[in-house]
Design a protein around this nucleic acid. Sequence first.
DNA 1: TTGAAAGCGCTAACAG
DNA 2: CTGTTAGCGCTTTCAA
Lengths: 349, 349
Amino acid sequence: MVDRSQRATARKATTLKQLAAHVGVHVSTVSRALNPETRNLIGPEVAKRVLAAANELGYVPNSMAAALRTGQSRTVGILIPDLMNPVFPPFIRGIQDTLDGAGYTAIIANSDGDKDYERVIVQKMQARFVAGLIMATALYRDDPAVGECIEKGIPVVLINRGVDNREISAVVSDDGAGIAAAVEHLVRLGHRRIAHAAGPPETYTGMMRRRAFLNAMQASGLPADEDLIVFASGYTVPAGREALAALLERGKPFSALIAANDQLALGALDGLAEAGLRVPRDVSLVGFNDMPLVDRIDPPLTTLRIQHYEMGAEAARILLDELADPQRDRRTVMLEPQLIVRGSTAPAT
Amino acid sequence: MVDRSQRATARKATTLKQLAAHVGVHVSTVSRALNPETRNLIGPEVAKRVLAAANELGYVPNSMAAALRTGQSRTVGILIPDLMNPVFPPFIRGIQDTLDGAGYTAIIANSDGDKDYERVIVQKMQARFVAGLIMATALYRDDPAVGECIEKGIPVVLINRGVDNREISAVVSDDGAGIAAAVEHLVRLGHRRIAHAAGPPETYTGMMRRRAFLNAMQASGLPADEDLIVFASGYTVPAGREALAALLERGKPFSALIAANDQLALGALDGLAEAGLRVPRDVSLVGFNDMPLVDRIDPPLTTLRIQHYEMGAEAARILLDELADPQRDRRTVMLEPQLIVRGSTAPAT
DNA sequence: TTGAAAGCGCTAACAG
DNA sequence: CTGTTAGCGCTTTCAA
């Protein structure tokens, strides 16, 4: 008889009920024995027998059932624009590693930068009972998906993007400090006409870094000439090349260029080469992000290293805190980027 | 009254029951009306009213409840060694995009190459009712986690790793064809003493590519000298450098090196530079994977491009097929890599 | 300390 | 065509 029931359960997962039958107690007893928080309500011998049986039968609790019952899924959603962009995997690892420690699981979704699809994703996540959301969609500044979450009372933490109101926590890199370090580095090398390839104006990082650039120039006593700022149409290599072409077309001379991210810097590198300008001899170039392998390209890219992994971990920590105490104050944490000086910057001639 | 109930449900998600009350029909009617497959059982006017109400109240089905009821979660697990390795994101995108189309969601977990942890992950996945698993852990050839899945009847598709028995489907790159193309390319350039930096012997790709190398050398009528094969201790840049050092120490001359992946090639590049050897002047170098930016390093790396995204998509398709029909025959699909000739290979001197 | 019973939200027989 | 009913696996009151 025991044999039969055991064989019958070989294919499907063992349930609490089966466990209870095996041990000869009621399901609720088993439930309590298995939960460390309620185990003290149970007789020690019984508890021991239950644990042993659970181990023997390879019992794995059905988390969907538990979630349905308690309304808590121990799942959090991660929203990113594109997993293939090397910036995001470290974020995700940082999040996952932190979440794992707290018994949470992450569900990752790509929005491809599509606002509408982002909303669909948020709905799907909601259907999966996500306890909270981490949005690394460093994209559009006004975002209906975020509003929807606030409305529905789903805790959200933003990465690499702040938000106008204070209803939401965020983890961002200190663009002001980063860009300032880059400008200072260039100024020290003797550059005075510094250009900026900014990210798209509708993106958070685009605007932040552009403003940081303006501030830093001013602080260095240099002319913050709007003519030396071009907006890229996206955060891609082709967009960088196009931006550079537009910049050159204006005919304003410059000896250094700070790009809003590494991909734009790469595109600018291509554009400069096409125009017959050498980096760093004719133009010094600074990127942002320190993507893998930019230290090995020709020339090695001077760039700002963001603490991607740490930002992800911090975002997860904040979310976990807010999950534990929803009344907790929202926080915005800023992590400072580090200027990595390599071969793409040189003294002005 | 309506106002109040609406407000009351503003925070929590709308349920079927509420929807039913709103429309004035029974829950099961609503359920049927919402499910396209059973909608035809419902009066068209009623169906329309239900759909309208669902839309109005922003109804999102609770997938946990549905999963609990049906035993089908529409979730599949993806197991990878490390998300930060740029090889994996394209796999994942390919999988996700394909799965999305079929209404499935993916849960991604990193194993960090730890066999034991891999088993834990599989258990957690099982607890989340995953319908199937895609394992891209291109690692150890014998793998208890895989056995566990077979035993439990969870469909599994392997990526970048075959398995000895035919109980499991797999999507792999055609290492034989890829390495053969590389060898042929080098031979055509006049190389005769070609070395190979193999992956760790306990990895599937390590062994496959090594064997492919031996075969290709033989087919080209070249000496397949075991002394010209070194095993790396991992698939990392430092491991590549160490492997190269070990190779040089043997004192056997070689004019070309095929690395089992790009990271090893990068490490070898470093090692060669340290030894005062120039690529490609003194040694030609071929990688495997065509990682982002290896086309922009110095020298641009000749390598084998794997159809990562397509492999992921194919794996998902196979899994979907097997989910629909568990009796379906297992398949192993091979996708051919493409040799991308760049600056790291040159005629033998 | 343990058992009984209810119910989370949904689906799927079975009736009508 | 629609309603009734039961139950997926689990947690959690309420009793005993």
